[in-house]
Nucleic acid binder design. Structure first.
Length: 573
RNA sequence: GGCCCCGUAGCUCAGCGGAUAGAGCAACCGCCUCCUAAGCGGUAGGUCAUAGGUUCGACUCCUAUCGGGGCCGCCA
């Protein structure tokens, strides 16, 4: 139930009736007619722009349309008053039973309140994290993980059929580097002195992997060349890293539906198949790219390569898919991977990348557009940098200085709930300041605690009421403006879910929850000065019972929102 | 040079083409003998970077310019 779409339907029905009796000309589009919460609550409960949107096409003054529409709207049982205001808005005030109905709806729908059928019948694949399997996840990955996971949950809540997927980059040169680094640790495990030169990973996290390798193969790889051990160690090391990464993901509450290996694309003809699809569409050719303007690499020389005509699908230049030595570029398996996703029948693909992959967006979209003949949409969400602060001071990460901040560091210090919420209180494409000190602080400065606290408070109130023997009444009794303000906010929840899902912006949920908590806390506090406004009154059990549905509804909506974000709704604090 | 993102209150940021642009922090003034003060109320603070355009209506869409960041052929 979404009262905004309900009332919009009422408005549309009234407009249809006006067309039927000649008050409006036939053939008008009502697509842009909205029913929205007004910015200023003094304007009423809801406003529609119908008269202004239709005035031009109908060849009538907004005022004339509005007057006729108002006359029809007031006959609706849900509408108390309707009046024309400003440039032609129609402000609606709804009858009180609508609001008590909303509360009843929330209570009976419970965790289903706000679920939408927006995405029903649409299959979406959300690919996120996809960090190279060469080490533990760091803070940047954490943001991508949290964002992608919340987005996936949001889309699921909005009715989409969602797959959460991780693309393992286990096919490129970085895995060779990993294997060599593990080999050094292996030698070390055998008591040899080793030096980590540039181009190897010196991190301690590979020590146990080297030891595990020793356990497995004994001294078989000692004093042997890469031709003997490289391939095996590559697989062994990648496997070990993925175990590490899965643990990291679990620590922050991320569970993937599928891990997809880049390596599985090689030697199976699948890359070739995908490229063949592009060839069929005449999008592959041999050619030479021009040097990039402005900043030209020093060793630039023109070279003939195999290119994908991505410019035919909106890219700025065509892109190489094969190196001059005949190997695939990174782009080629990526094309194959997306071709695979398309073949699996998704209607929409979403990739969550770090901002440093910004240059990759157009070519990837071009590939998906080409391979699906424009039928499958690809939305790429780039997550910006996380700037770390400790005690208000910027905190620089450096692998060399050992100040490399991992996902584990974050979770260990502030916990999964806090890390997730904080990272979702910013748009994905805005940089994020993350202050360890503030994150664990229990103050209003920290939105996590504010929202959690409001939820805990509703739980506490329900417990006290139960202790008094008060059971929630069937119908809520709404007496004060502050109570109505809370209900209005609650009524916006289903609408907000749809907006957030349509724009792929889970941060809207976090901001909404803060607003709802604020509305609730505000009215709660007025109970200090006006004891009659308290929800739980020891000397008035029926009165208490008549307020409990509202308290319960607030609890439900906050819990539903936090669940979408993957944050635990705490019952006590 | 090209492409992408950002520019909104002193600071950090919200804002689905709609009315007088919002919140938190910081500043100032108030409010706690318990429905969880980890809070609440109030005051002050704005040429929404700039200039055009589209529109009944622009912080929102388009174009240009300025400023900040990122990326830019065999690295993934």
């Amino acid at each position: 139930m979404n009262i905004f779409t309900d009332i919009r339907s009422v408005v549309i029905a009234a407009l249809d009736a006006m067309v039927a009796d000649g008050a409006l000309p036939p053939g008008l589009s009502f697509a842009n007619v909205t029913a929205e919460p007004p910015r200023d609550a003094a304007h009423g409960d809801m406003a529609t722009n119908a008269a202004m949107v239709l005035a031009k096409a109908a060849g009538k003054a907004p005022r004339d349309i509005a007057d006729t529409l108002v006359a029809r709207l007031v006959t609706n049982a849900q509408i108390e008053t309707a009046e024309v205001a400003g440039p032609g808005f129609i402000n609606l005030r709804l009858v009180e039973s609508v609001w008590t109905g909303v509360v009843g709806e929330v209570v009976s729908a419970g965790e289903g309140y706000g679920r939408s059928d927006l995405g029903t019948g649409t299959k979406v694949n959300v690919e996120y994290v996809s960090a190279n399997p060469t080490g533990p996840l760091h803070v940047g990955h954490t943001r991508g993980a949290v964002f992608g996971d919340a987005l996936a949950s949001l889309l699921d809540f909005a009715g989409y059929e969602v797959t959460r997927e991780y693309y393992i980059n286990d096919g490129g040169a970085q895995v060779d580097v990993l294997a060599r680094s593990v080999y050094l640790r292996y030698l070390e495990a055998h008591g040899q002195e080793v030096a980590f030169e540039d181009g190897t990973y010196p991190g301690d996290y590979l020590k146990p992997v080297g030891e595990a390798l020793k356990e497995k193969v004994g001294d078989a790889y000692l004093d042997k060349g890469e031709d003997v051990w490289l391939e095996d160690v590559r697989g062994f090391a990648t496997e070990a890293m993925m175990v590490l990464i899965r643990e990291d993901l679990a620590a922050i509450g991320v569970k993937m539906d599928r891990f997809y290996s880049e390596k599985s694309l090689y030697g199976t003809g699948r890359i070739e198949d995908a490229i063949e699809e592009l060839k069929k569409r005449d999008l592959i050719y041999r050619g030479t790219l021009e040097a990039p303007k402005g900043k030209v690499p020093e060793d630039w020389e023109p070279r003939e390569q195999t290119l994908f005509r991505s410019t035919a699908h909106g890219d700025d230049v065509d892109r190489p898919i094969m190196k001059s030595d005949g190997d695939w570029t990174y782009f080629a398996p990526d094309i194959a991977y997306h071709w695979d996703k398309i073949s699996r029948g998704y209607d929409a693909l979403i990739d969550v990348f770090g901002a440093d992959h910004g240059g990759y967006v157009k070519r990837m979209k071009a590939a998906v557009s080409a391979l699906s003949d424009g039928k499958v949409t690809l939305d790429i969400k780039l997550t910006q940098l996380v700037k770390l602060y400790k005690d208000g001071e910027p905190f620089k990460m450096s692998k060399r200085a050992g100040t490399f901040v991992t996902l584990r560091d974050v979770v260990d210090q502030v916990g999964s709930d806090v890390a997730r919420f904080v990272m979702l209180t910013r748009k994905n494409d805005a940089p994020l300041d993350f202050d360890f000190a503030k994150a664990v602080e229990g103050s209003k400065d920290n939105p996590v605690f504010y929202v959690q606290y409001a939820h805990a408070r509703t739980c506490s109130m329900m417990r006290s009421a139960e202790g008094l023997g008060a059971k929630p009444a069937d119908t809520v009794n709404l007496e004060y403006a502050g109570e109505l303000a809370i209900v209005r906010k609650i009524a916006e929840w289903p609408r907000l879910v749809e907006i957030a899902a349509r724009t792929n912006e889970p941060h809207r949920i976090a901001f909404y929850l803060y607003e709802l908590a604020s509305e609730f806390n505000s009215f709660y506090s007025s109970g200090k000065e006006f004891p009659e406004r308290k929800f739980v009154k020891e000397d008035d059990i029926p009165g208490t019972a008549s307020k409990l549905p509202l308290v319960s509804a607030v609890r439900t909506v906050i819990a539903n929102g936090l669940n979408v974000l993957g944050v635990t709704p705490a019952e006590e604090m």
